[in-house]
């Protein structure tokens, strides 16, 4: 088993895709010669050529829009949007074109396009470089949305996303890019749209994804010292959501706290809370709590520690849940 960072996991996963599928392409700003600003595509243009790892114009609508055209021609593009806050110029092509073309065609055409987006804060960046725009895409029928929280998931999920005949928006938590962990490149991976219990417990359930899985695990570790046995679930897939592990967990713990960096209003926590209230009402001992970013634009980086969900805010929410 190899130890690698999330960046390396993604890079190795993409290498597998390019080796195994001659129709796969990587395209984006600075993905070729430079290897991407985070080096996720490092070395791939050198090995697979500039026809398959394409440095594109600085043009997000163009990246998504031409990826659609390439998909119509039989290619399987994997696009990189350089930062979360730069996806909006490509918004129409993502939500009105990429998402809907299969439906408009009556199911006759497929759109095997992956849109990779480094996401989230916590790296001291300037504005537009720390956002969590997942709700826009989760709210858009026709797209699938996933996010990885570990190098192993990064390695496998990017390959699974590339194999999908539906368009996948793939969020990569940039503050976890350089954390190392073991990666099993041989065992059969969990399905792309499955959630996973990453820590088993009985007192309450923490539901997280992407960058906040680590936050939740740390909170569970600290809580254990206080005698609280928290379960942690990594959603992994934000659209569709794999509900069964959540229902199973709630029936066991009766309490849930959803943790994400995106603002609270109509964030993933809203949907998770509403659905679990509908489907697990008699199992709930307390309302589903949310620990999220605030309903403000992402703040100046000197304030991001106050904005981002952290261990203390998560444990505070657990305490409030336990008070019911």
């Amino acid at each position: 088993m190899a130890t690698m960072t999330m960046v390396k996991g993604l890079n190795e996963g993409l290498r597998q895709v390019l080796e195994q599928d001659e129709k796969a392409l990587i395209m984006g700003e600075d993905v070729g010669l430079l290897g991407g600003v985070f080096r996720v595509t490092d070395g791939l243009q050198k090995d697979f050529g500039s026809e398959r790892v394409v440095d594109t114009p600085l043009s997000e609508s163009g990246i998504i829009g031409t990826a659609i055209g390439l998909a119509l021609r039989g290619y399987r593009p994997i696009c990189e949007i350089q930062f979360d806050g730069f996806v909006y110029p490509g918004f129409d092509q993502l939500v009105s074109q990429l998402a809907k073309l299969r439906n408009r065609s009556g199911g006759r055409i497929k759109m095997p396009v992956v849109v990779r987006i480094p996401c989230g804060g916590g790296i001291g960046a300037i504005e537009h470089h720390s956002e969590s725009p997942e709700s826009y895409f989760v709210h858009t029928a026709g797209l699938k949305v996933v996010t990885c929280a570990s190098p192993e998931d990064a390695y496998w999920m990017i390959q699974q996303a590339a194999a999908s005949d539906d368009p996948v928006v793939f969020f990569e938590p940039k503050r976890r890019y350089h954390a190392k962990a073991e990666v099993d490149t041989t065992a059969a991976p969990l399905g792309l749209h499955r959630s996973r219990v990453v820590r088993s417990g009985s007192t309450a359930t923490l539901i997280a994804y992407g960058p906040t899985v680590d936050v939740a695990l740390n909170a569970a570790g600290a809580a254990a010292e206080e005698g609280l046995d928290l379960e942690v679930i990594d959603l992994r897939s934000l659209s569709p959501i794999d509900w069964e592990p959540l229902r199973t967990s709630l029936r066991k713990t009766g309490r849930a706290v959803v943790v994400h960096e995106a603002p609270q209003t109509l964030g993933m926590g809203s949907e998770v809370a509403a659905r679990l209230s509908e489907e697990c009402f008699y199992s709930l001992e307390a309302p589903v709590m949310r620990v999220t970013g605030y309903d403000v634009p992402y703040p100046a980086s000197r304030l991001e520690d106050d904005y981002l969900p952290n261990l203390d805010r998560v444990l505070d929410a657990v305490d409030r849940s336990l008070e019911y």
């Binding site: 031409t66 659609i68 021609r73 039989g74 074109q97």
Partner: peptide, 16 residues
Amino acid sequence: SQTLHAAGYAMGVAKD
């Protein structure tokens, strides 16, 4: 919107 789809498709024609 279709102008970009056409541009991408035409890139594919050249790649082919």
